[in-house]
């Protein structure tokens, strides 16, 4: 139906994980579809399609976003970060590393959403309490029951982030001063 409404797909300029992309897509296409199908970024998962489960979470301008209910046009002019943007297999980001250490996965389908949501929380609140972490993850669904491990991973992520400290935080005058 989307395509019938937009026979001529627009070419959309997107910035994902720090790189510029030009993607032909109907502007109403969910961002998730473009990320997975056009950009081959399969970190974000399709779960419910209604923004209810959180498996599709990405960051838009540093804020968690449920990419299955956000049309791709909303991402124009913004910085999108997916799971792939947090680190690599060889060098996982602090939050990814914490989830690995804490073995916070059973089937792993929800983990993209868990990691991205924790990442978004830590960017605005580097030292969350367990309650704050619980509240933030309240609406990310996990069917396997690894909640305890996930909470542990969230707290560990805050710890790892604090340890990397100065390396993560810049200075107003740049490295020189």
């Amino acid at each position: 139906m989307e395509n019938s409404l937009h026979p001529d797909c627009a070419v959309l300029a997107l910035r994902v994980n720090g790189r510029a992309h030009r993607v032909p897509a109907a502007p109403d296409t969910p961002l998730l579809h473009v990320l997975r199908n056009d950009l081959a970024l399969n970190g974000p998962k399709f779960g419910c399609g209604l923004g209810e489960c959180g498996a599709c979470t990405v960051l838009i301008d540093g804020v968690a976003a449920r990419s299955c209910v956000i049309p791709v046009r909303a991402a124009r002019g913004r910085e999108v970060t997916t799971l792939e943007g947090l680190g690599t297999r060889a060098q996982p980001g602090a939050t990814q590393q914490a989830f690995i250490e804490c073995q916070a996965a059973q089937c792993g389908y929800c983990l993209n959403g868990m990691i991205m949501t924790v990442e978004a929380l830590l960017r605005r609140n580097p030292r969350p309490t367990e309650d704050e972490l619980r509240s933030e993850l309240h609406h990310n669904l996990c069917r396997c029951g690894t909640h305890i491990e996930i909470l542990r991973a969230g707290l560990r992520a805050a710890q790892l982030r604090a340890e990397c400290g100065a390396a993560c935080v810049g200075k107003p005058h740049g490295a020189g001063r």
């Binding site: 209810e52 959180g54 968690a64 978004a120 609406h139």
Partner: peptide, 15 residues
Amino acid sequence: ACAVCHEAGSGPTLF
């Protein structure tokens, strides 16, 4: 269906 985006005082900060 609704609380994730509409429930005051809890839940994630979403775009």
